[in-house]
Each structure stands twice: as structure tokens, then as C-alpha cells.
């Protein structure tokens, strides 16, 4: 029932006539949403136009002219054509995808496994659950520093490995190009598996228990119950969990930058790190603006898609709740 209908129904039932609520509520609704609308305009529309304008020039803050005079260095879309041939950019994009392709499935499988263990009650469940969620609440920069310490060549990780193997192991994790990438991935998996776990568990707990019981009575094995009842039930939730991690890994910066600074060389340089370096060290802001715009356009497409999925999830949820009530 929409708000207006509700009000109409109330008005019909009430002995007194109410003030013309329709106009009043529309005006109030407008006023309540106005600050947010203005903030969105302030952060999206104007900056995007500015970004588009600057991206067509060679402007840099070192030029000594205001950004509005950037047309003086107009370069006929050279930033965009340069981007196509920028090997460092493609490398960063590639590395970001590698991290995504390793971390997202790893986090997903670990989290799904853990979540199935937490489906029913057992002694200590609540405290284990709280502890397992801790990593995602640690400030990412601090998590980065934790792993920076862990992966030192004289650090505790090599210490543990030495104790286990009986040899004196001194692996220089963060200064080897491949191992540094591995280290960065380990940190991401450590920090964000809990988020997936949290989301997937919430989904699994929502699977109706009577269905599982019925299946057990009918002689379904654990594996059959898992693959034919539980997994299909949480399909949408899995998509949401995966989408959130894909989006967040695309932005990966804090932990990684503290651990390696994108190095050694460019071995762990991701998109965000690359943009950060061009912004603060090379200071070619016209070029940065072009990169940023390309990313924004690509992501907007993803946003529309994700939004549709989430809308479907919410509607599916509403249908399920109505069904349960009936």
C-alpha cells in the first residue's frame, strides 16, 4: 500500500477531515531529500564535468594556471589514445584482475565452508563467530601494517616456517615480485573472508529447516542436501556477496599500499595505486582525469547490473515472506 493510499484510508476512517496531506507530504518529502540531492550534485555532477574537461588537456597543478584555463593545453584526446598504449596502466589493470581472480574464489570457498559449520548450534558458537568476524573490522591500513610485519624476512611467518621445517628459512616475501603479490593476496583473504562468511551464513540460516529435515527423512545424504537444497536457496545471496567483493577488490589500496607501496618495482601496482602515484608523483592530472573517467564509465555499467540483481533479491525476499505468512 502506498503512503497516499494509507492516508486516504485513515482519512476515511477518521471523523475529522485531515489537512490536504498530499501536497504537504510531497513538499516535506522534497525538503527531506534535498540535502542528499545537493550533496550528490556537489560530488557527482560538477566534479564529473570538471573531470571530463581536464581529461581533454595536459593540465597539471604545476602549470600555474587555474584548472578552468586548462584549454590552453588542449590535446585532442591524446590522453585517451595514450592510455591505450600505456603498458603500466594495462599491467596495473591486469594485476588487479589477477588479485580478484585469486582472492574472490578463495574467500568465497573458505567462507562457504566455514558458514556450513556454523549452521546449527554448538557450544561456543557465539564467541567463535565474534572472533572470526574481527579481521573485517580492523582498520585496513592497520591490517596492512600487521602483514607488513608478518612478512618481514626475519619476521614471525618465517619463524613459524623455520620451526616447522627445522631449517633456517629467510624468505624475503615483500621484495620478491611474485611472493609480494602472494603476500598481498593473503592479507586480502585474511581480512575479507569474514565478510563473505557473515553474508553467506545469514543466507544459509534462512534456509527453511523443515525442508532439510524432510530431505534427511527421505534419506538424502549431506552432500545431496547441500547441493540440491541449500546452494540453490542462497543463489542470489552468493551473487551479492561475490559482487561486493569484486567491487571492493577493484578499489584495493590501503592494505596493499602499506605493505608494498606497489613494489618491488611495479610488481603489486594495482589500478588505485597506479592512479595514486601518477596523481601525487608525476602530477599529470589531465591524464589521471582521463583514466578515472574510463573507470567510472565502465563501473557505471556494472552498477546498473548490480542494482537490478539487488532489486530482484529484495523482491524475491518479499515474495518469500508473503508466502511464509500465507
Amino acid at each position: 500500500m502506498s503512503a497516499t493510499e494509507t492516508i486516504a484510508a485513515t482519512a476515511a476512517a477518521a471523523p475529522r477531515t485531515l489537512p490536504p496531506v498530499d501536497r504537504e507530504s510531497r513538499r516535506l518529502g522534497f525538503r527531506l531529500t534535498l540535502p542528499t540531492q545537493l550533496l550528490v550534485l556537489f560530488i557527482a555532477v560538477f566534479p564529473l564535468l570538471m573531470q571530463l574537461y581536464i581529461s581533454l588537456t595536459d593540465w597539471s597543478p604545476l602549470d600555474g594556471v587555474g584548472w578552468w584555463k586548462a584549454w590552453q593545453s588542449w590535446n585532442n584526446f591524446a590522453n585517451y589514445t595514450d592510455l591505450l598504449e600505456d603498458r603500466r596502466w594495462w599491467g596495473a589493470l591486469w594485476r588487479t584482475f589477477i588479485i580478484m581472480l585469486v582472492c574472490v574464489p578463495a574467500e568465497f570457498l573458505l567462507a562457504l565452508g566455514l558458514a556450513t559449520l556454523f549452521m546449527d548450534d554448538f557450544p561456543g558458537k557465539q564467541i567463535f563467530y565474534s572472533i572470526l568476524l574481527m579481521p573485517m573490522m580492523v582498520v585496513p591500513a592497520v591490517a596492512g601494517y600487521m602483514f607488513f610485519m608478518l612478512f618481514q624476512s626475519g619476521g614471525p611467518l618465517n619463524g613459524i616456517l623455520s620451526a616447522l621445517s627445522g631449517m633456517d628459512i629467510k624468505i624475503a616475501w615483500l621484495s620478491d615480485p611474485t611472493l609480494a603479490l602472494v603476500a598481498v593476496m593473503v592479507a586480502d583473504i585474511w581480512q575479507w573472508t569474514p565478510l563473505m562468511f557473515l553474508i553467506l551464513l545469514a543466507g544459509l540460516v534462512g534456509v527453511p529447516e523443515d525442508q532439510l529435515k524432510a530431505a534427511t527423512l527421505l534419506g538424502a545424504s549431506w552432500r545431496q542436501r547441500f547441493f540440491t537444497i541449500m546452494l540453490p536457496r542462497i543463489k542470489t545471496i552468493m551473487v551479492i556477496a561475490l559482487a561486493i567483493r569484486v567491487i571492493e577488490i577493484f578499489k584495493i589500496f590501503d592494505t596493499l599500499y602499506i605493505m608494498t607501496g606497489g613494489g618491488p618495482g611495479v610488481a603489486t601496482e594495482t589500478i588505485s595505486v597506479y592512479i595514486y602515484k601518477v596523481t601525487t608523483q608525476d602530477l599529470i592530472w589531465g591524464y589521471v582525469a582521463a583514466i578515472a573517467l574510463v573507470i567510472l564509465i565502465a563501473l557505471s555499467v556494472v552498477a546498473v547490473f548490480a542494482m537490478k540483481r539487488m532489486e530482484a533479491a529484495r523482491n524475491g525476499d518479499a515474495v518469500a515472506r508473503k508466502g511464509a505468512r500465507a
Binding site: I43, M50, F253, I271, A292, L299, S300, M310
Partner: peptide, 22 residues
Amino acid sequence: LPLALIQLRLFPPMAVMIPVMI
């Protein structure tokens, strides 16, 4: 607003920082 705000969240902060810094 729902879509606009999701998009806002989706963008890497690094990709909108040039105009914000200016």
C-alpha cells in the same frame, strides 16, 4: 537516489579525487 548512491559507493575514491582535490 537509490541508484545514484550505489554508484557513488561503487566508484573507487581514487577515480574521483582529482576534482575533489581541486
